[in-house]
Design a binder for these strands. Structure first.
Lengths: 171, 171
DNA sequence: TAGGTTTGTTTCAAACTTGAACCAAGCCCG
DNA sequence: CGGGCTTGGTTCAAGTTTGAAACAAACCTA
């Protein structure tokens, strides 16, 4: 089949997106590097952990939530652990497992950095958009995200995430 | 002033965006790594060069067009040059200047990789969106991009880009 | 025109990402 | 039970990105 090239409208949308996405990520990284000494992804790790029950998550779950590879997460958590913001714990129900737990220090750092981060996101993005556009944005990207569903495992609903896998306790 | 946190709608939009953007970039990188042996950004470099007059551009202009740092570009072009896809030339009008030129081999590689790349962009993004959403997307991200205008220099209109700077020829 | 500033690019070390390979521990089934 | 397959994580080398520093040429300006 002959290639279906992008229409002019698609091309404009694609280019605007690629450019703006790059600029935003860079700006976010710089801002957080300044105020928290870590890139955006590392901040996100703390953020996701802070919302998890008991502020702890299995590595794999954390990686899935963040949409990054386990290997990337391992590296990041090692660094955050060195900084004292995250602690690794052994999983009692699955001896293979490793749990990342947000420390109090990590929580403090997160709370300290959050306002500046949110402010940046606002300045770069939401302050420039109408409420209508915010809704459109969600529509667009949740649709896109759907396309990736099934690429990764899905959660078993009724269990705490950091003990979800390997359902049987040891004892 | 007390922090203006994100509203629930904004949060949903932001999370959908962050997740989908990550997944798309990863998928794009993998696809191009497979088919062209280079990450998305490197493909973009070739692509931008291919559309420039005489398929050549000053490093700084190229970096600006791609919204990346000069340092990042230097590294990338060095690699692409090793692969024979790009050639560096001296700028005759400004001895400081360096010009990146797309080689025939580079053009061939680009043409070979383009269909697969476009197909991926379609599958991941445009096939999932309505024409209306494509328009919305452009609206949203050109608005965001506007916010960054002036962060970088702008072009002087009426001259060829690869000789734009340092207006006076040497001779 | 000398001296100081700006501009264009590269260099360097440190940090980060990638993907394949590896090591355990759990799981499955004869 | 005893392999063999799958899963959870880490490790390692190679590749990439970052940001600051270094250079060199061009551009003032007194």
């Amino acid at each position: 089949m002959t290639t279906r090239w992008l229409t002019p409208e698609e091309q404009r949308a694609w280019r605007a997106y690629i450019g703006a996405a790059l600029l935003m990520e860079d700006a976010l990284d710089r801002q957080l590097q300044q105020e928290a000494g870590m890139p955006h992804m590392y901040y996100s790790i703390l953020s996701v952990l802070s919302e998890a029950p008991e502020r702890r998550l299995r590595m794999t779950d954390l990686a899935e939530g963040l949409k990054i590879t386990r290997s990337r997460l391992t590296y990041a958590v090692t660094r955050l652990e060195k900084d004292g913001l995250v602690r690794r714990e052994h999983c009692r129900w699955d001896k293979r497992g490793s749990i990342a737990a947000l420390t109090d220090e990590g929580m403090t750092m997160l709370e300290r950095a959050a306002p500046g981060h949110v402010e940046t996101v606002r300045t770069l993005l939401f302050d420039r958009l109408t409420p209508e556009q915010v809704r459109q944005m969600e529509g667009i990207f949740s649709k896109v995200a759907e396309g990736f569903e099934g690429d990764a495992a899905q959660a078993a609903p009724d269990d705490v995430p950091w003990r979800r896998r390997s359902a049987k306790p040891c004892s």
